[in-house]
Design a protein around this nucleic acid. Structure first.
Length: 116
DNA sequence: ATTCTGACAGCAA
DNA sequence: TTTGCTGCCAGAA
């Protein structure tokens, strides 16, 4: 777990937060997509790490809109309540079934394509 | 300094 | 097709 140091080394982290904040309402993206957008295509795990410490970042970060490439809510357990993430997504019009996002392909928002 | 782990992803058996 | 091992990078013990 990351400490509270945080410093200004958040280069990678801040970018993750930025992209995450740019995710449109009702859309979602994947860790890998963000990682690739940031350059390090194979550091998808770091994206999750960044989101794990997103509490250190001011403002609201729609981390619930970031799921793994299968559309699976792998991080729902990190939202305090295991159902929080699912509810947030459902609140945005997304349908979750068995911790998986339906129509993931349609709702998928790729920063590489959308932002470029 | 060394080792382990993690909200992933990709390829091998 | 499903399961499992490895690669990635950063941070904690």
């Amino acid at each position: 777990m990351p400490s509270l140091k945080q410093k200004e080394n958040n280069d990678f982290f801040e970018r993750v937060y930025e992209v995450t904040k740019l995710i449109p309402y009702g859309r979602i993206t994947s860790y890998g997509a963000i990682a690739r957008f940031l350059g390090s295509g194979r550091s998808a795990r770091m994206v999750g790490w960044a989101l794990n410490v997103c509490h250190n970042n001011p403002g609201f970060i729609p981390a619930h809109r970031v799921v793994n490439r299968k559309g699976l809510l792998t991080g729902k357990h990190h939202f305090g309540n295991s159902t929080t993430m699912e509810q947030l997504l459902g609140n945005e019009g997304l349908v979750i079934e068995d911790d998986k996002i339906l129509n993931f392909n349609e709702k998928f928002w790729d920063p590489l394509t959308e932002l470029k």
